[in-house]
C-alpha cells in the first residue's frame, strides 16, 4: 500500500490517491456526458447522432407526466432524506450512550431495511398500507422512503460518531450546563461531515428507488424512476436523456449555490 511507502511527513497527500479520486469521478461522469450529448439529438436514437436540436427538452417541458414525475421524485427524496437523517442522528447519539450489550439488537433493527429484498418490501408495504387504511399516494411514499432511508443515513453518521472524542462533550458539559446548547455548539458541528454524507446517501437512494415507489404510488404521485421504467414498453427516447440532463443540471445548481454559501461563510 502506498501508505507504507511514504517516508514523507505529509500523510495527507499520498501518492496515487489524487489520481484515483480523479479517475473515479471521471468514470462516474462518463455515462452522464454520453447521455447529455444524446439529449440534443434531433433523431430518436440514444446512441446515433443525427443532428442537434432542442426538441427533447421541449418535449419534457410540454409533457406533464414526466415533468410532474420528476418534481414528485425530488420533493419525496428531500423530505424522506431529511426526516431519515434527523431520526438516524438521534439514534446514533443514543447508541453511543447505551450499554454495549444492548446495542446489538438496536443495531440490527436500524439496519434491517437494508436486508429486505426491495420487491418484498414493496409488496409487504402495499398489503400493509392498504389493510390499515393508509391508502396509496404521496403520504405512503414518504413513510416508506423514510423507513428504508434510515440505515443509509445512520451508518455514515455513526461512523463519524463512534470515534469522536467523548472528552470533547464532557468538556462542553462543564462549560454549558444545558444539554441542548452542548449539542448545538459542540456535537452538531463535529458531526457535520457524517450528517452531510448520510443525508446525501439517503437522498440518492430515495431518488433512485423504483420498485417500492411503483407499488405505493397513488393517483398523481408517480415518480420519475417509475415513469422511466414504464416507458421501456414503448422504447426509450432521448426524452429520457433530456429529463436526466435536467436533473443533473438541477443538482449542479445546488452544488454551485452551496459552494457559494460555503465561500461566504469562510
Amino acid at each position: 500500500m502506498a501508505l507504507f511507502d511514504t517516508r514523507s511527513k505529509d500523510i495527507r497527500n499520498l501518492p496515487g490517491f489524487g489520481l484515483t479520486a480523479t479517475l473515479a469521478v471521471a468514470f462516474l461522469y462518463a455515462p452522464i456526458l454520453f447521455l447529455v450529448l444524446y439529449s440534443f439529438n434531433s433523431g430518436r436514437s440514444i446512441s446515433r447522432l443525427d443532428g442537434l436540436s432542442w426538441q427533447w427538452y421541449q418535449a419534457v417541458f410540454a409533457n406533464e407526466e414526466i415533468a410532474g414525475a420528476a418534481l414528485n421524485s425530488v420533493l419525496l427524496a428531500v423530505i424522506a432524506a431529511s426526516v431519515a437523517t434527523v431520526m438516524a442522528t438521534a439514534a446514533a447519539l443514543a447508541m453511543v450512550r447505551m450499554k454495549v450489550r444492548r446495542r446489538a439488537a438496536a443495531y440490527a433493527v436500524l439496519n434491517f431495511p437494508l436486508m429486505v429484498p426491495e420487491i418484498v418490501t414493496a409488496i409487504a408495504s402495499l398489503i400493509f398500507f392498504s389493510s390499515v387504511g393508509l391508502g396509496l399516494g404521496f403520504g405512503s411514499l414518504v413513510i416508506a422512503h423514510t423507513t428504508f432511508c434510515i440505515p443509509f443515513a445512520y451508518l455514515p453518521i455513526t461512523a463519524r460518531l463512534t470515534s469522536m472524542d467523548p472528552a470533547l462533550e464532557s468538556a462542553a458539559a462543564d462549560l454549558y450546563a444545558r444539554p441542548w446548547r452542548r449539542f448545538t455548539l459542540i456535537t452538531l458541528p463535529l458531526l457535520a461531515p457524517g450528517l452531510i454524507s448520510g443525508w446525501l446517501l439517503a437522498f440518492i437512494v430515495s431518488l433512485d428507488d423504483f420498485i417500492i415507489s411503483s407499488m405505493l404510488s397513488g393517483p398523481g404521485s408517480t415518480t420519475l424512476p417509475v415513469h422511466i421504467y414504464s416507458m421501456l414498453r414503448l422504447g426509450i427516447t432521448p426524452e429520457v436523456n433530456a429529463v436526466s440532463s435536467l436533473m443533473v443540471a438541477a443538482s449542479a445548481l445546488v452544488v454551485i449555490i452551496s459552494g457559494l454559501i460555503a465561500r461566504k461563510q469562510t
Binding site: I127, M215, P219, G220, V226, S230, L232
Partner: peptide, 22 residues
C-alpha cells in the same frame, strides 16, 4: 391525470390491495 405502471403484475397487485383510486 395520467400515472404509469411498469408491469401488469404491479397493476394487479395494487388493484387487489383495494382500489388505488384510478
Amino acid at each position: 391525470h395520467i400515472d404509469s405502471y411498469d408491469s401488469m403484475e404491479t397493476m394487479i397487485a395494487k388493484l387487489r390491495a383495494g382500489g388505488a383510486g384510478y
